[in-house]
Simulated scan of single mutants.
Amino acid sequence: MNADFIDALEQIEKEKGISKEILIDAIEAALISAYKRNYGTSQNVKVYINRETGEVRVYSAKSVEEIVEDDLLQISLEEAKEIDRNYEVGDMIEREVTPKNFGRIAAQTAKQVVVQRIREAERGIIYDEFVNKESEIVTGIIQRMSKGNVYINLGKAESILSPTEQIPGEAYNHNERIKTYIVEVKKTTKGPQILVSRTHPGLVKRLFELEVPEIHDGVVEIKSISREAGSRSKIAVYSHDENVDPVGACVGHKGVRVQTIVNELKGEKIDIIKWSENPEELIASSLSPSKVLKVIANEEEKTALVVVPDYQLSLAIGKEGQNARLAAKLTNWKIDIKSESQYNESLEI
């Protein structure tokens, strides 16, 4: 190695942000192993790289002892005194043992270490970038499918959309652009593992933040979301400005804003309701699109009896109970729905 190599390390320090000293220390440590491996020795050696010229020197280090038990690691006090009268027991003596052809091995080893460290540093940068994007939306291009997993190119990294995070029945086509929600970023030996989702309620929340300026600016707040991915979502919104209608802001002119989100979710229906601190109002709204006649709430047990017109019962409950189920998740109340006839009959008993 030579001065050009040192210049190259300084350039890497500027471009990649990896300290030259850290690289040299790593190379010196690797060269010790390389020396022992190539020259079949178990002696205690040290490697020094000149920070200016790049010259590499190898030294054998031995401790000064009264009685020598291992010639490779120790030297007698008598022999040490012949080298320098000032040596005492416990001192370390270093003698240069640099082989003539060690420069080639040193250059090869140094290159491997530098490449490895650059790769590690780049992985670290990518990890730091994406770990800060957890719970955010990213747009990528579908690269491939394998064992049910969808692999998405995010530019600097690849994310994994596992079968459990895929919307039932949704098709994932090669080279198609897709928005996903980052659930978790893990640090692995092969670089960051980015786990994304299409089913997470957070995806709906972030899509509304992207599409509705009033939400992005904090004027309108998303209070609660319940979702059955691929089928239906309910979202409860609240306005901090009495002059701004939270539902209207989310729907947009002629439904443009919500329709953009529905299209992104491949036709998933979205019910937008106005949040209320009043449990009766909130529960009644949560059962949209059905009409509600009466809500009898028990705040201690967080249970509510909801009365709907007879012809609205099936709509209120929803197909396979979906509407009632989503309303319960949205409000965090246990909801029992009865038709007007059923409620009146129960009063007569």
Rank of each mutant, 00 (worst) to 15 (best):
299 E>V: 14
137 I>M: 03
303 T>G: 04
162 S>C: 11
177 R>P: 05
206 R>C: 03
84 D>I: 00
159 S>N: 07
280 E>T: 11
131 V>S: 15
85 R>H: 10
77 L>E: 14
125 I>Q: 14
31 L>F: 10
177 R>E: 14
177 R>I: 06
174 H>A: 13
225 I>Q: 04
245 D>R: 04
82 E>N: 09
60 S>C: 08
343 Y>M: 00
143 Q>F: 05
126 I>F: 09
24 I>F: 04
238 Y>S: 12
10 E>C: 02
48 Y>V: 15
177 R>T: 02
281 E>A: 06
62 K>I: 04
317 I>V: 12
70 D>N: 14
54 G>S: 00
188 T>L: 00
273 I>Q: 04
80 A>M: 02
182 I>V: 15
211 E>Q: 03
296 I>W: 08
312 Q>E: 15
126 I>L: 08
267 G>W: 06
205 K>A: 13
35 Y>L: 03
181 Y>H: 02
172 Y>H: 10
264 E>I: 08
250 C>R: 03
85 R>W: 10
211 E>G: 01
105 I>D: 08
287 L>F: 08
195 L>Y: 12
321 G>K: 00
145 M>Y: 13
198 R>F: 03
317 I>C: 08
40 G>R: 11
201 P>Q: 09
177 R>H: 12
102 F>I: 03
121 A>T: 10
87 Y>P: 06
147 K>W: 09
298 N>E: 09
317 I>A: 03
344 N>H: 12
332 N>S: 14
12 I>R: 05
127 Y>E: 01
164 T>P: 01
307 V>T: 14
54 G>W: 00
109 T>D: 05
48 Y>P: 02
152 I>G: 01
276 S>L: 13
255 G>P: 06
276 S>M: 12
22 I>C: 00
17 G>I: 11
178 I>D: 04
88 E>I: 11
147 K>L: 13
126 I>P: 00
147 K>M: 12
269 K>A: 10
25 D>T: 09
68 V>H: 04
261 I>K: 00
87 Y>W: 11
177 R>Q: 08
64 V>C: 02
210 L>W: 01
129 E>F: 12
325 R>H: 13
242 E>G: 06
82 E>Q: 12
50 N>A: 08
316 A>Q: 02
124 G>P: 05
191 G>Q: 07
28 E>S: 03
156 K>Y: 11
305 L>F: 11
210 L>V: 01
163 P>G: 10
129 E>Y: 13
241 D>A: 08
311 Y>Q: 15
248 G>M: 02
71 D>L: 14
73 L>S: 05
39 Y>C: 09
305 L>V: 14
32 I>P: 04
152 I>V: 08
25 D>G: 02
250 C>I: 05
265 L>N: 02
133 K>L: 14
41 T>W: 07
105 I>P: 05
214 E>Y: 07
270 I>F: 10
